[in-house]
Amino acid sequence: MNPLYKYTLKIADDSLIFGQRLSELCGKGPYLEEDIALTNIALDYLGQATNFYKYAAKLEGENKTEDDLAYLRKEKEYLNAQLAEYPNGDYAQIILKVYFYSVYLKFLYENLMQSSDEQLAALAEKSIKEVRYHYTHSSTWLKVFAQGNEESKNRVAEALENVWEYTGGLFDEVEGEADLEKLDLIPSSKKLHQDWKSQIEKDFATFGIEIPTSDFMQKGSRKGIHTEYFGYILCELQYMQRAYPGCTW
């Protein structure tokens, strides 16, 4: 299997599943303005997913469409990080997830813009502005919650307790990343993780959030191992395509 295909897929799968999760909130946000903002972020994710799936399909070379890849794989073929599938939870947790993911995507795309693969570089360039906005939005709220009142502080702390152990999976590697790295096609996942950690430390120091001391991280991301939540996401995501095979919509 072409490792660049898998790598592109892992980016697309993250975006799809983050977008799917986030869009559960649509119509049920805390303010109308936030409803719009979060839906916008979900839309950006789905747009990015579509673009990366299209490229992945091209790399695979089996004439598949972006929908085939998004809708018609089995659970273990999805290479997203488990963080994407973790439930929304309360608004503090939603914001925290978007924040963690935005910092990751910011470094990922900034680096991919230098990729020796022109297509990947172009896709990253296309997406970076969106991600910077997501970062601004989520970090602004995170600061508000971290410095708001007792309840919001506790909620941030609890969300962090829930989500932290899933952040490592963002940086887990698909097979063959080392080779891609040597060809300057992709950045080093280890380096991304360091950059990510530094940014989080800096931001958290400003916001007044303590970074968890535990370095335990959940395993299985990028390898098709998921949380128990994931199967239920697929039930809904894929239902129409599974129940009406081969139809055009």
């Binding site: 559960e24 119509g27 839906t39 839309l43 579509t50």
Partner: peptide
């Protein structure tokens, strides 16, 4: 939204609902 049968339709639906929130505003 969660069951929209293609990526394009899912995005169009989300965007539409977002427009409605905007109209509300």
């Amino acid at each position: 939204i969660s069951r929209a049968p293609s990526l394009r339709r899912k995005m169009a639906l989300l965007a539409k609902i977002q427009d409605e929130a905007g109209h509300g505003l």
